[in-house]
Simulated scan of single mutants.
Amino acid sequence: MAMKKDFKAEVLALAESMVGIPEDAFKVLHSKQECYCFDTGKKDEEGRTIYALVYVKIPDVEGTKTRDGFDVEVAKAAYEEKMSAAANKPAKKSAPKGGDPAVAEKREERMKVLRRWWENEAEYGHDYTSTEVFNALPDIYGIDVNTQGAMLTGRDLAQLAKEGLAEMNMVEKKKCYSKR
């Protein structure tokens, strides 16, 4: 038997109070789901306000004929498997047409290290510039800060965004990447 509506609403209200949703947040529908929306205080390069969405959902612990009930251990294992697969996944485009396979191999090695660092060291909510990541990973990008190295790091961060591990944001007219 599924959770009773009143009980589920009570648990949802409790969860919402635990999450610490900003007082100025308001409810919206996004992708057909109810969620909280609030102004981040940031603007993109065209002056548009950047909003954040917070979804608070109480999953049913009992399954139905068409879906399993929520099991936290299964959900945690699925998340770990996804992150592990993403960290070890080769770049979709290993070698450009006519490109040097050695260059593609070197890039893939950099991407593996970057993915591991991003998964284990990058902080949620922080906007990383390519220079910050460049400086954080001198073993793969070199020790000296130079334009070419930071540009290389930027291309690798863009690849992380394509893979769904990062999100690109414009902060003060600079490309920044935040952990998803």
Results as ranks from 00 to 15, higher is better:
residue 50 I to P: 09
residue 54 V to P: 00
residue 56 V to S: 05
residue 59 P to D: 00
residue 61 V to S: 13
residue 66 T to F: 10
residue 67 R to L: 04
residue 68 D to Y: 00
residue 69 G to H: 06
residue 71 D to W: 13
residue 72 V to L: 14
residue 75 A to Q: 04
residue 76 K to P: 10
residue 81 E to M: 03
residue 81 E to N: 05
residue 81 E to S: 09
residue 83 M to S: 02
residue 83 M to L: 02
residue 83 M to I: 01
residue 88 N to S: 07
residue 89 K to S: 02
residue 91 A to W: 11
residue 92 K to Q: 11
residue 93 K to E: 12
residue 96 P to Q: 03
residue 96 P to S: 01
residue 99 G to V: 06
residue 99 G to A: 04
residue 99 G to K: 01
residue 104 A to G: 13
residue 104 A to N: 12
residue 110 R to N: 11
residue 111 M to I: 12
residue 117 W to Y: 07
residue 118 W to A: 06
residue 119 E to A: 15
residue 119 E to F: 10
residue 120 N to M: 10
residue 121 E to R: 11
residue 123 E to V: 09
residue 126 H to I: 05
residue 128 Y to N: 11
residue 131 T to A: 10
residue 132 E to V: 03
residue 134 F to W: 13
residue 134 F to P: 00
residue 134 F to N: 09
residue 135 N to Q: 10
residue 139 D to Y: 06
residue 141 Y to W: 08
residue 142 G to T: 04
residue 145 V to L: 14
residue 146 N to L: 12
residue 147 T to D: 08
residue 147 T to S: 05
residue 148 Q to P: 03
residue 151 M to Y: 13
residue 159 Q to I: 12
residue 160 L to E: 09
residue 164 G to W: 06
residue 167 E to N: 14
residue 170 M to E: 04
residue 171 V to R: 04
residue 173 K to C: 15
residue 175 K to S: 11
residue 177 Y to D: 05
residue 179 K to E: 08
residue 179 K to W: 05
